[in-house]
Write a protein that binds this DNA or RNA. Structure first.
Length: 439
RNA sequence: GCCCCCAUCGUCUAGAGGCCUAGGACGCCAGGUUCUCAUCCUGGUAACAUGGGUUCGAAUCCCGUUGGGGGCGCCA
């Protein structure tokens, strides 16, 4: 039988990291088994289920590459089927009408639990049991005539031919009800796999108060979809060997439900950051440049003379220093504007030192005479001057770096100078001389 | 309160009775490379919650304790 899994979010506006992880596991499992991964939008809550909210779910999945195989099923279109199922249960005596709790709102349809002890084998938690006395009958159709989650969920899973339900831990207790419903409707129940929660440092469910909690936030912060996917796949699951950075194909190949851990796991943003850096370093040049470009546009640092060709050279010299696209603006803005910030500490350490400005002035003079002005020629000039003065190259390198970039961190100085170009280097040094002369 | 689940370095994890004086990764610390930073390389730090069993032998099996989480809706 062909495996069919589904992701069934209710579109509330944001896709929580825990939910998307369930989607990732469902996708991975389906792909591993050569089955289908389906999407069902549980939009029965008309208040919150706006078209924009649905859009956000689709966007998040698309961004992460969670492709689904058939047209998404909108639960709101299935109400007649849900109600028909309830009638069927009623006629078979498996459900009854009652004003449960005496609300005075009229009669609801209540499903009758079998009254026997139940057990099932969860694909990650193993065998789970519950005693008959711990399970109560429950409402499947409200007195206002609308179907309840449990009913809709099961009727739709039957309709979609779902073979494996992979969902959050919080549904474990519902499973007995769902199993009973499947049987009452004469359907073979699917296999269940309950995923432990993603928790915060306090062990509480991970929420927006713990930093980014929604897929969109990670995207906005500049994380690469591949990195987030890889990280989340490894949060609660492991291939059984020491692999960490894994391609999507490797993940699909290795993924099995029996290797999913049953203990909750905590997000480690530092590790995600590291992984993102690793993915950045592996990114094709063109994608790296494209990503940086949109950040620069966002920050108003683009366009710039030289265009993409210039950007390519900047990205090239920044190299491994880019852990996020945003780093191009946060750590390399000086390549794109004359209005770059000066780091106080760097200035006092490198420019306000005895003789620093005087050396800079001399060096600028030598730079001015260089033709062509390249990494090689500027390096040669600087080293020659340092040698004549009997001091280390660092004594000149550092002041120049701070003068032209405002910071003491950055790429190889000489490559940086070449990319900036002679004119800008000279004018920046001059300006720095003026600015810090009296200070 | 009742029911269920969980428990290895700070974090993510490997471990399915002897291969474990517990392995890997992130982080952190130290060193190397270097003009700084980043990358990279080397080394280090650090864990089987606890008490009982079972066994020749337990991180691995059983029971209790503690600690955490989830669930007990005409929410999903």
């Amino acid at each position: 039988m062909k495996i069919r899994t589904r992701f069934a979010p209710s579109p509330t506006g944001h896709v929580h990291i825990g939910n998307i992880r369930a989607a990732i596991y469902g996708w991975l499992f389906a792909r591993h088994e050569g089955g289908n991964f389906l999407l069902r939008i549980e939009d029965t809550d008309r208040e919150r289920s706006t078209p924009e909210a649905v859009r956000m779910v689709l966007d998040a999945m698309n961004w992460l590459g969670l492709t689904f195989d058939e047209e998404p099923l909108y639960q709101s279109t299935r109400t007649p089927a849900h109600l028909a199922a309830a009638e069927q249960l009623l006629s078979k005596g498996l459900a009854y009408k009652e004003d449960k709790g005496g609300t005075g709102m009229g009669e609801a349809i209540i499903f009758r639990m079998p009254g026997t002890d139940m057990e099932f084998r969860d694909e990650v938690k193993g065998v789970l049991r519950k005693k008959a006395e711990d399970m109560k009958d429950f409402v499947i159709v409200r007195s206002n005539g609308t179907p309840v989650f449990h009913l809709a969920n099961i009727v739709d899973d039957i309709h979609m031919g779902i073979t494996h339900v992979i969902r959050g831990d919080d549904h474990v207790e519902n499973t007995y009800r769902h199993l009973a419903l499947f049987r009452a409707l004469g359907a073979e129940p699917p296999k269940y796999a309950h995923l432990p929660m993603i928790v915060n440092a306090q062990g509480k469910p991970y929420s927006k108060r713990d930093g980014a909690a929604y897929v969109g936030e990670f995207r906005d912060k500049g994380y690469l979809p591949g990195a987030l996917f890889n990280y989340l796949a490894l949060l609660g699951w492991s291939p059984g060997d020491d692999r960490e950075i894994m391609s999507r194909e490797e993940l699909v190949k290795a993924f099995t439900l029996d290797r999913v851990r049953s203990a909750p796991s905590q997000m480690d943003i530092k590790k995600l950051d590291w992984m993102n850096g690793a993915y950045m370093r592996a990114l094709p040049k063109s994608e790296l440049e494209q990503g940086c470009c949109s950040i620069l546009e966002q920050k108003g640092l683009w366009p710039v003379t030289g265009g993409m060709e210039y950007l390519a050279r900047v990205v090239e010299t920044m190299g491994e220093r880019l852990h996020f696209f945003a780093d191009i603006a946060d750590h390399a803005a000086y390549f794109f504007t004359e209005d770059y910030a000066f780091d106080e500490k760097a200035v006092s350490k490198r420019l306000k030192k005895e003789g620093a400005l005087e050396s800079l002035r001399t060096l600028a003079g030598r730079f001015a005479a260089l033709e062509p002005f390249t990494a090689a020629t500027s390096e040669q000039a600087l080293r020659a001057m340092a040698e004549q003065r009997g001091e280390g190259a660092g004594a000149l390198v550092h002041p120049v770096r701070v003068a032209v970039s405002g910071t003491s961190e950055g790429p190889s100085l000489f490559h940086m100078l070449e990319v900036l170009g002679k004119d800008r280097v000279l004018s920046r040094i001059r300006r720095a001389l003026d600015r810090f002369a009296s200070a």
